[in-house]
Design a protein around this nucleic acid. Structure first.
Lengths: 211, 211
DNA sequence: CGTCTTTTGAGAGTCACTCCCCGTTCAAGC
DNA sequence: GCTTGAACGGGGAGTGACTCTCAAAAGACG
């Protein structure tokens, strides 16, 4: 889910035990350097107009290093370091709670824990995803994977078989809706509060989609 | 919507007046030849393992011609010739009908009009979309565009402002759900009937997504 | 300090796509 | 039917994302 990326790229301490050692620290630095350079260049001249070589140069590494850190150019934007965050969060919710409610809570809480810088990055990322076809596509893959994960958890929790249609439909619909809230929020001239948008979105979902 | 492609690539007469003329006929032939060759090769050796040059050779045209007909390799799978079909279908439904119901009807009716060959192609396409990341991404773009279109129609129909959150959420959720039904159907060993799956899917949506 | 492992950079190669130009083919008016 | 303008197909050069391989450089560790 593009949304949870907030937590992933957050400056906060990663969930896994931070490995000590100069080597690990340097890796993190390089990773950050590449991403920062990329974002700066994307902002200035656009995603497509920015070749990877240029990013490498700006980050002062070789092009091959960029690809070693990020398998594709898209991944520079859509990093996915802490995939387990979302899953853990869901599993933390009481098993009796409806999925839709779980997701709403997680979204709002994650947001509450984010700082101004995280949010600024989230806007930039969301706009990139909205405007660049390649990124939109890639984001969809992430969403699909998240949907599978959520489906698994919900199936398990509700005792339904894996791959149950209802479970999958709900998971997919919820994520699609959340994405929509995000896009709306990142729209130019977004005066709305993201938490409010998310709550409204989930209200629509639970009220039967009649319109 | 990947789904409506059934109608698009159908052997049935296209919705627009079929232009006469040798030129047009030859174009159609070339287009078909390329796509058929591509599908055959994809089936045999996989999407990624099939370079465009090889498709060109199999279809007996030059590589540049392939790109003239299909802007990207992905478009050979996800053709989009009759974009207006879906929009027209929606506008044909009574304005008082809930969107979800309109979509359900359209899906089932379109399916009813399809023949065995169309369905076979639909399975193959759906599996390709499921398995090939690039295609999954591309399909998502189509879905996003369809969602915007549906939102526009629904907003207009219900008197809500363009870009209304509820409208967008519903459109996105419905399409995501439909996609899920399709994927489920195309799963290996699909014994279920697609119409049934679609109906079940929409039932889940209208029943408030509680689970 | 020396060795062992990991990381990095450089270079060559593949493939999707773009651009451009030239020869061919169809269409339409005469 | 014939000509002329436009559309169409082919060829080739070029770009950019990515892959692979190999050798040099740098942290880890005794």
């Amino acid at each position: 889910m593009t949304f949870m990326v907030t937590a992933r790229t957050s400056t906060a301490t990663p969930p896994k035990a931070p490995k000590t050692g100069l080597r690990e620290r340097k890796k993190m630095q390089t990773r950050q350097a590449i991403r920062r350079a990329a974002y700066r260049l994307f902002e200035k001249q656009g995603y497509d107009a920015t070749p990877v070589d240029q990013i490498a140069e700006a980050a002062d590494v070789s092009p091959s290093t960029v690809f070693r850190y990020f398998p594709t150019k898209e991944d520079i934007v859509l990093t996915d370091e802490y995939d387990t965050v979302l899953e853990a969060a869901i599993r933390d919710r009481p098993a009796t709670e409806p999925v839709v409610e779980s997701l709403r809570r997680i979204a709002v809480e994650t947001l509450g824990r984010s700082n101004a810088r995280d949010r600024a990055e989230l806007v930039q990322r969301t706009r990139l995803v909205r405007d660049v076809p390649a990124l939109r596509g890639r984001a969809a893959e992430h969403t699909a994977r998240d949907a599978r994960m959520i489906s698994a958890v919900v199936a398990e929790r509700s005792g339904r078989p894996t791959g149950d249609l209802a479970v999958r439909v709900i998971s997919a619909a919820v994520l699609a809706a959340l994405q929509e809230a995000l896009l709306r929020w990142a729209e130019d001239g977004h005066s709305d509060d993201l938490e409010t948008l998310i709550n409204e979105t989930f209200d629509v979902l639970t009220h039967g989609l009649t319109l």
